[in-house]
Nucleic acid binder design. Sequence first.
DNA 1: TGTAAACTACGAAGACTTTCGTTGACAACT
DNA 2: AGTTGTCAACGAAAGTCTTCGTAGTTTACA
Lengths: 126, 126
Amino acid sequence: MNRIRPTPGEWEILQALWKLGPATVREVHESIAAERPVQYTTTLKLMQILAEKGLVARDESARAHQYRPAVEREDLQADAAEDLLERVFGGSAAELMQRALSRRKPKKSELKELRKTIDAWEGRKG
Amino acid sequence: MNRIRPTPGEWEILQALWKLGPATVREVHESIAAERPVQYTTTLKLMQILAEKGLVARDESARAHQYRPAVEREDLQADAAEDLLERVFGGSAAELMQRALSRRKPKKSELKELRKTIDAWEGRKG
DNA sequence: TGTAAACTACGAAGACTTTCGTTGACAACT
DNA sequence: AGTTGTCAACGAAAGTCTTCGTAGTTTACA
């Protein structure tokens, strides 16, 4: 029940790690710096904090440490989604869905995918 | 494009105001204090901050000021949902959906409602 | 060997958030 | 009039988050 709530900065690092696979600070930093201006030591610090918190693991055998996520992406995503669902949508998934797409004119393919997700549920359980 | 991001404490107040309708600090406070322990002045301070930020309006003509939301609930919810969608789910609504319900065994009625929401979209636009 | 480059570690500033105590005004009651 | 209760305003402490500079170490190489 106790949710892990990475900060926005921490999410950014984690997303980069999931995208890159095990990576050094330098690699993560360049991935992020391609999107927005940020100093190397800022990225480093965030990654050290994540390591302290146990959200990433690191291999220190090489001089440039290798980092990798130490938690399942799906679990963190579920934590985040549930948190929003409860705090902001009073538990109504339909409302969450509706608001998430309300300003966005979802594509047909997206709707199809959503339908498929729901079908999978229906099949799995009532 | 610039999203309004109430803090968790601010959300709590806003939810109470949407539930209660225009209300005094005392009323909001008692609604919240029924859920968790909190001092009156804490609630007051949050509401003053919300007023400063323009997220609530207040009528000061009576001694006990009357507060009401000054922004649309739907807009704030959309801001919050979009933020999560982008930051955590890379824009994939289907994944958001899936994670939001993954540990929850959604009820049939809930799935039906979701389907209805999607149908509404399909009808409104492709 | 000595200088430059690449790293990690560390600390700290500045902003934001939450929480609450204190103060002073006003009101109600005795 | 004096005491008690309710209210808004304010300030400030404690915690968190982001950001970056500085220091010190190791590696590369001229």
